[in-house]
Simulated scan of single mutants.
Amino acid sequence: MAAVSAEEEEEPPEAAMKKELGPTPCGSCIAWPPAVSERYEPLEKLGEGMFGDVYKAWDRVGRRLVAVKRLSGRTDNRFVETSLRYFAREAMSLGACRGHPSVVKLVATHADSARSDGDCFLVTKYAGPLNLRQYMRLRSVQGRPFLEAEVRDAMRQLLSGARRVHDAGVLHRDMVPENVIVDDRRDGKKVVYRICGFGVSERAARPDRDGSAPLASPSPYRAPEIFLGSQDYDGRVDTWGLGCIMAELIAGSGKPFFGANLDAKVFEKMQRAVGTQGIVEWSGLQRLARRDLAAELREKGYATYTGCLREVFPEEQLSEAGFEVLSGLLDANPERRLTAKAALRKPWFRRFSFGGCCFVP
């Protein structure tokens, strides 16, 4: 077992942290190698995906709560093999974004070198008990819709995190509610949102795309240019995903805003909501295999169709300033779509005014 990287922190108040400890899972259920199990005490399972599982754990060395993500080194009846390349990519992306409060904090990485199909482990600071999907569904069941001020606060944090990711030269490529950790245990203080799930991230400056973009994001969060097969994309594939999240926060149902049972239906639903004008006007459309799409849309009279997003979210539900952000994030034309930096400069996020001059984060 080799430790690839590690970071120690100041010891938090131990008494307060001990209150967080839950029941320890059965040791036989967790196959961690000695170098990992000796340092981290598993407390409860937080989730599971196709590549591995995540546990809340107690870091005996750092005296803190952490999340231990295990990436399976082999394919079996539960998980798909994760290569060292993908492990390194996620670790490097997290490391590049370290220090921002809206991105989960990398603590350590471990790779089991004792066996050829050994597991890899990513350890991050524990960020909260729920992901955003779970939190939205909980709020829906409780009959507690998100107020516009709450949506604004959530989006400010997420866009700020995305700006840090993009400034670090990273594309997340999987901005979905399941990859946002929510901490609402702060005794009436603001809810904290942190971006996680960098497993399919890539370097923004990479000249040779690997064609994996359509597999990176689930279809309800996939930007139109990715649906159309573009390999020429940037951080605005992430801000599209954040626009989808914003729409879901406002809608309050806890379900994907563009959700449908087939990818083709998702794309149709997307076009109805945000329009087809942006796709037709996008210069990159002519470089795609489906370059005849513009002609098809014009023939059908859709070249100027701007969608019905404002009808879905009327002004009594979302202010004009808020809608400017939502429609900017969900612009079908990636050349016009808001970047994270540009979105944060919109009037909706202005908090203080001094003689007509506004502070903008």
Rank of each mutant, 00 (worst) to 15 (best):
M1W: 09
S5N: 12
E7L: 11
P13N: 15
E14H: 04
K19F: 07
E20V: 02
L21R: 13
P23C: 05
G27H: 11
P33I: 06
P34T: 05
A35D: 14
V36D: 09
Y40L: 06
E44M: 10
G52Q: 00
V54E: 01
Y55Q: 04
D59Y: 08
D59V: 09
R63C: 08
V66L: 03
A67I: 04
K69V: 02
R70D: 05
F79P: 05
F79E: 03
V80Q: 15
T82G: 01
L84M: 10
R85Y: 08
F87S: 02
A91K: 11
S93N: 05
A96M: 06
A96W: 02
H100A: 07
L106K: 00
L106G: 00
L106F: 05
V107T: 06
A108C: 11
R115W: 07
D117T: 10
G118F: 07
D119Y: 04
Y126D: 01
Y126P: 04
L130A: 09
M136G: 05
R137K: 14
L138R: 14
P145H: 02
P145R: 12
A149N: 10
V151Q: 01
D153A: 15
A154L: 02
L158H: 05
R164Y: 02
V165K: 01
H166C: 12
H172A: 05
D174Q: 01
E178D: 15
D183C: 13
K189W: 10
K190T: 13
K190E: 15
R194D: 00
G197H: 00
E202T: 15
A204G: 08
D208Q: 07
D210V: 11
S212C: 12
A213N: 08
P214K: 14
A216M: 02
P220M: 05
A223Q: 03
P224N: 08
E225K: 00
E225L: 02
I226N: 00
S230K: 07
S230Q: 11
Y233T: 03
T239C: 04
C244A: 13
L249E: 08
A251K: 13
G252V: 05
G252H: 10
F257I: 12
G259T: 06
N261P: 01
A264Y: 07
F267P: 08
E268K: 10
K269R: 14
M270F: 09
M270Y: 13
G284L: 05
A289Q: 12
R291C: 15
R291S: 14
R298V: 15
R298L: 14
K300W: 13
K300F: 09
K300T: 09
Y302T: 00
T304Y: 07
G307Q: 12
L309N: 04
L309E: 13
V312K: 12
L318Q: 02
S319C: 03
S319K: 00
F323K: 10
V325S: 01
V325D: 02
G328Y: 10
G328F: 06
D331N: 15
N333D: 15
E335I: 01
A342V: 04
F354L: 14
F359H: 08
V360G: 04
V360C: 13
